[in-house]
Simulated scan of single mutants.
Amino acid sequence: MATAAPARWLRVLERAAVPVLLVAGWEIFSRSGVLPESLLPAPSMVALAWADWLTGYSGDTQSHSGGWLADTAASSARVLAGFAIAAALGVGLGVAIGWSRRIEAVIEPTLQTLRPIPPVSWIPLAIIWFGIADKPAIFLVFLGAFFPILLNTIHGVKSCDRDLIRAGAMVGGDQGKLLRFIVVPAAMPSIFAGLRIAVGSAWMLTVTAEMVAVKSGLGYVLWDSYYFLRYDIVLAAMASIGLLGFLSDLAIRAVMNRTLRWRRGATLRGGEG
Score class of each variant (00 low, 15 high):
241 I>T: 14
96 A>R: 13
82 G>Q: 10
106 V>R: 10
58 S>G: 10
86 A>I: 09
14 E>G: 12
1 M>I: 11
166 R>S: 12
251 A>K: 03
185 P>Y: 05
81 A>C: 13
169 A>K: 00
239 A>S: 11
236 A>W: 08
260 L>K: 06
165 I>H: 03
230 R>H: 14
72 T>Y: 11
18 V>K: 05
13 L>Q: 06
257 N>P: 02
144 G>Y: 12
199 V>Q: 01
105 A>R: 06
225 S>N: 02
259 T>D: 05
29 F>E: 02
269 R>E: 14
239 A>P: 09
21 L>W: 10
16 A>E: 03
206 T>N: 05
100 S>W: 13
122 W>Y: 15
247 L>C: 03
122 W>E: 03
246 F>Y: 14
147 F>N: 08
158 K>H: 07
107 I>E: 06
19 P>E: 06
12 V>D: 01
248 S>D: 03
255 V>K: 08
237 A>K: 04
103 I>A: 14
93 L>M: 10
215 K>W: 04
64 H>Y: 14
27 E>L: 11
213 A>P: 09
103 I>S: 08
154 I>A: 04
62 Q>L: 13
245 G>K: 07
230 R>C: 11
197 I>M: 14
200 G>D: 10
106 V>Y: 13
121 S>K: 01
264 R>Q: 12
95 V>N: 00
63 S>K: 11
151 L>K: 02
236 A>V: 07
187 A>C: 13
273 G>I: 13
193 A>Q: 13
162 R>F: 00
271 G>I: 14
138 I>N: 05
180 R>V: 06
77 A>P: 05
244 L>R: 01
194 G>I: 01
220 Y>V: 06
59 G>D: 07
139 F>Y: 12
191 I>M: 14
232 D>I: 09
49 A>K: 13
151 L>H: 05
26 W>E: 00
94 G>H: 02
18 V>Q: 00
102 R>Q: 10
220 Y>I: 04
215 K>T: 14
4 A>Y: 09
224 D>Q: 12
177 K>M: 09
6 P>N: 05
166 R>L: 10
120 V>C: 04
194 G>Y: 01
168 G>D: 01
6 P>G: 03
246 F>A: 13
26 W>D: 05
34 V>Q: 05
62 Q>N: 11
244 L>K: 02
22 L>R: 06
110 T>M: 13
44 S>W: 11
62 Q>I: 09
117 I>D: 07
108 E>T: 06
132 I>H: 09
190 S>K: 06
169 A>H: 00
215 K>G: 15
3 T>A: 14
76 S>E: 08
101 R>G: 15
221 V>P: 07
234 V>R: 07
48 L>G: 12
122 W>V: 04
46 V>E: 07
30 S>L: 06
50 W>S: 10
197 I>N: 07
122 W>R: 01
119 P>Q: 11
247 L>H: 04
27 E>Q: 15
195 L>Q: 08
7 A>R: 15
272 E>G: 05
67 G>E: 11
241 I>E: 01
247 L>Y: 04
263 R>E: 11
122 W>K: 03
70 A>E: 14
